[in-house]
Amino acid sequence: MKQAVSLKGIKEGYQLIIPASASLRSVLEELTELKTQLKKDAHANHQIRFFVKTGDRRLNEEEQKQIIQIVEDDYFKIDSFESNVVSIEKALEWHNQSSPTLEVRNVRSGQLLQTEGDLLLIGDVHPGGTVRATGSIFIIGQFKGIAHAGFAGKENAVVVANFRYNAQVRVGDNVHIIEQKESDEGHTDESEFVYVNDLHIIEISPLEQLKVIRPEIGKYAGGLT
């Protein structure tokens, strides 16, 4: 019978390559065999590290434990399990973290718009309406309600909007009240952004400063990190 599991030496130790097409049971059998073989051949008195590569198969925790049980002992150690695939759940989590949610609507009094990751809202936030995101919030429209960025605790989130009406901004645990600007004096029609500075105090800055203060925004890598 052709061997499914193959062993490849690398600098750090050994790669244990388990093809996705092989059935788990035969893999486990082969591993047991391999283990005894290796045990015989091994003269080393230092620890040998294994990196398990499972190709297009994802092993669940139970399966990983089985393999660990077979392979690991005083000298053999499994360093990591790696596969080319991720679960849809995990993928969605990454996706939601790294790509902003686009919403085109008005958030009315009493409504709550909540998203994972960043939120780009095209529409108004009416008085009494709330937008909430685990990441940053960008509002294109009149902002008169409550915006809560980084509500799960991400303090480096920001809120970008035109702060000319009565409103409230929260970033993480910090709250900032925005008073309506009287008449035209001193108000700009331009957007600004709210962030938490190094002293944990909420501050409003002109939009030009965003790149300086939060250079990471707009450069999300996403994925396996």
Binding site: R108, S109, G110, Q111, H126, P127, G128
Partner: peptide
């Protein structure tokens, strides 16, 4: 007007 806004939200 504020209450009307809330009602529209509920009707939506």
């Amino acid at each position: 007007i504020r209450d009307a806004d809330r009602i529209i939200g509920l009707i939506e």
